[in-house]
Amino acid sequence: MAKPNKKGPVRTVQISCSQCKARIFKYRKGGKGALVKCFIERIVEDYTEQACCCPGCGQEFARETLIRGTPAYKMIGGKVHMK
């Protein structure tokens, strides 16, 4: 399978925790659909101290995985909000 584009899309979105509204990532997202996965190489700004844990409330919002051979975060449904 093809790897995701390194440069990626130009449009950036703000990802925040749906429980405490703390900022998590600024991410270059492609397409119009829901946020299912975040490729780590497309994250512009990372506000977390520990991977996959919210900096505000500490809940786990994603799981680390490999998608098409590239490290990514697989989002847990309903834990994050995208703006």
Rank of each mutant, 00 (worst) to 15 (best):
C20T: 14
Q14P: 00
S18H: 07
R63M: 09
C53Q: 15
E45K: 15
A22Q: 13
E45F: 04
P55E: 14
G78N: 03
K79M: 11
K37F: 04
Q14G: 00
K3M: 10
L66H: 06
A34N: 11
M82C: 10
T65S: 13
I43W: 06
C54W: 06
K37M: 10
F61Y: 15
I24S: 01
A62R: 05
P55H: 12
G69D: 10
L66M: 13
P4A: 05
G77D: 09
R11D: 02
K7C: 01
H81K: 15
I15W: 04
S18Q: 10
K74W: 03
R28L: 04
P9C: 07
E45G: 00
K21M: 07
Y47W: 09
C53P: 00
A22Y: 04
H81T: 14
F39E: 13
G69P: 08
I67W: 11
M75T: 02
F61L: 04
K21S: 11
I15Q: 07
K7P: 00
S16D: 05
C52Y: 09
V44Y: 02
R28N: 07
Q14K: 15
V44H: 04
K32V: 11
V44L: 06
F25Y: 15
F25K: 13
C57G: 09
V36K: 14
A22L: 05
A34C: 08
R23H: 08
R68M: 11
F39L: 13
K83H: 09
K32M: 06
K32C: 01
E64D: 06
R68E: 14
C52G: 04
C38D: 01
K32A: 05
I67M: 13
A51G: 01
M75L: 15
C52A: 14
Y27H: 11
A62M: 09
N5L: 12
A72D: 03
I40P: 00
K26A: 05
I15Y: 03
T65W: 12
G8Q: 06
K79T: 12
I40T: 11
I24L: 14
V13W: 01
A62P: 03
K29C: 03
E41R: 14
Q50A: 11
T48D: 03
G56C: 11
A34L: 12
P9N: 08
L66E: 10
E60P: 03
P55V: 10
H81W: 07
E64S: 13
I15L: 12
K6G: 00
C20M: 13
G78E: 01
Y47A: 12
R23G: 01
R28P: 00
V13F: 01
F25T: 06
A62T: 04
I43F: 08
G58P: 10
Y27C: 09
E64H: 07
Y73D: 03
